[in-house]
Design a protein around this nucleic acid. Structure first.
Lengths: 323, 323
DNA sequence: TTGAAAGCGATACCAT
DNA sequence: ATGGTATCGCTTTCAA
């Protein structure tokens, strides 16, 4: 590490006082041209960089928030992040982004360092609330897609019941009665999305008896579909945990020469890239990101926070080509 | 905005001194349990949050960098960003991300605020160097895919000549002699990638006489391909400006019932999602992000910066299924 | 266990 | 046009 050079060092080198240096650097008027140049030269020569901390202490407030994402490469989270970034920019905020790589260890590491860098935290967490609280004491925290027990935290809720219901309705309406599901990998347990699916099926008197777990990748979806069709060759339609899995399923079906209606979940733009374009139960990712930032803003300002349904994002069926 | 509550307010409320508050908040040992609780309660009640600036001023250095990306939703930039994030995390750095929405205005806005927030800047810029310099005085700046005139800036260079050559070689070797290209939209001018293509074609005595501009989207690629084939129905292969355009071309070709070899550029993971998987001239996005951060680290530390070929990222042909 | 005082690096106000 | 001094909010010696 290079020595830390302060404004004092520059002042000394240029043979002036601190405040003169400050004037030169900040283009304040009242300074002699020659002096200014001398100061600037000295600053450059020394490689001086003003401390953002000292500056922040004295200057009007800048607010910045931490955005915690499990995996930026997952298109769903990318979309949420982009939306949050945009919402933050609109407020003139800075966003410090942390990718926890879906690892609890990384998440903990993030939590440990985030406190001293931001004014509020927004994003996806899996650690217990006590741990979250410990590292974020005193700052607003907005959880996404996780229901906190403590009122200490605010949260953006995802409700897919209606959307999934619409998806199943649509499948049934188009003649599908043997509908399977590719859920998330089994070890994670049954998902909310499965439960929404189950309820929707029940509404039609259908049993959710063809469910297989899939790894969260295109290949995972493809493999899981092959397995599912192995057991249940009679299926004519499949609902999947997310779009990526759906895309894998779509591909597998085609390669198996099977005609199969597929409906994903997420509503990624990615779904328009494949052929046929993916029909999906779409989440408004922009809204998720924007909402989280909005809530953080209210919390930060001490204004009335959003509550109840205002914090819920509803999924909706997005009809494209695959079903 | 709520009033700003300082450590002094908490001290007063709890009837102790500042340093006692500090101890309580930072889990320092030497403090009475009861006192500590009282302080903590007071802090919570007042909604106290320590100033990150004041803290940063006193505590061991945290370094954070600004990452400037034209469009986070573009998968290519997402990958670069993810790589940069990871490289930064490995160093314990914080990354403030700015999405300039490919707009000069936003870029300027970013530049104006970034200076007071970060220790170095890394990313994609389009503004003139003088303007860049003005807002980043004194801090390291690493440009990606842009050749600076001034030594004031460092840069990561992209060299696709070899990769594109390999792509054309491969096409020729597999019997294609009528090879077209879908370049970026015409108004932007001919791209580096076009010139690499032209040279590669020349090496085989082939003329790059079937070139059309395409908008940077799947549809853009599809439309451009249709147009290109309209003029030149004899083409059997196409090289494209990037993967997204290639995917559009692939789809259009299929819908037109045309057998067509397609090679994209970028090497996105996205290319494995489509069917057939996209053959492409791949850029190592991880390396781009990692390199940029590495260079920033050296600059920051005053160590010998990387130079010459160490700063160049070579593209390489990635054979998948579409050619 | 607690408090007083010094100081981190920069800016602003008030003199000169 | 330039410099002195107070100050921002917090942590860290050093005493008590």
């Amino acid at each position: 590490m290079s020595q830390k050079i302060t404004i004092n060092d520059v002042a000394r080198a240029a043979g002036v006082s601190r405040q003169t240096v400050s004037r030169a650097l900040n283009d304040k008027g009242e300074i002699d041209g020659e002096t200014k140049q001398r100061v600037l030269d000295a600053a450059r020569e020394l490689g001086y960089r003003p401390s953002r901390f000292a500056r922040g202490l004295v200057r009007p407030d800048t607010t910045s928030i931490g955005l915690v994402i499990p995996d930026l490469l997952n298109p769903f989270f990318t979309e949420v992040a982009a939306a949050a970034l945009e919402a933050a920019r609109a407020r003139g905020w800075h966003v410090v982004v942390y990718d926890t790589a879906a690892s609890l260890t990384e998440e903990r590491g993030t939590l440990e360092v985030i406190g001293s860098q931001v004014d509020a935290v927004v994003g996806y967490f899996h650690l217990p609330e006590t741990e979250l609280d410990q590292h974020t004491r005193g700052m607003p925290v907005v959880l996404i897609d996780r229901e906190p027990h403590s009122p200490r935290f605010s949260s953006i809720r995802i409700d897919g019941a209606r959307g999934v219901r619409a998806a199943v309705d649509h499948l049934v309406a188009t003649g599908h009665l043997r509908i399977g599901m590719l859920d998330q990998a089994a070890r994670t347990g049954l998902s909310d999305r499965y439960h929404w699916f189950r309820d929707a099926m029940a509404a039609h008197g259908l049993a959710p008896d063809a469910v297989t777990g899939a790894a969260q990748s295109v290949n995972g979806g493809a493999e899981a579909l092959a397995e599912l069709l192995g057991h249940r060759p009679d299926l004519t339609a499949v609902f999947t945990f997310n779009d990526v899995i759906a895309i894998g399923a779509l591909r597998a079906a085609r390669r198996l020469g099977r005609e199969l209606a597929v409906i994903g979940f997420d509503g990624l733009q990615l779904g328009t890239v494949v052929d046929p374009e993916l029909t999906t139960v779409a989440l408004d990712t922009r809204r998720i990101g924007a909402l989280a930032v909005e809530q953080a803003a209210r919390l930060l300002a001490g204004a009335d926070p959003l509550a109840g349904d205002d914090l819920v994002v509803q999924a909706a069926l997005l009809l494209r080509e695959s079903a």
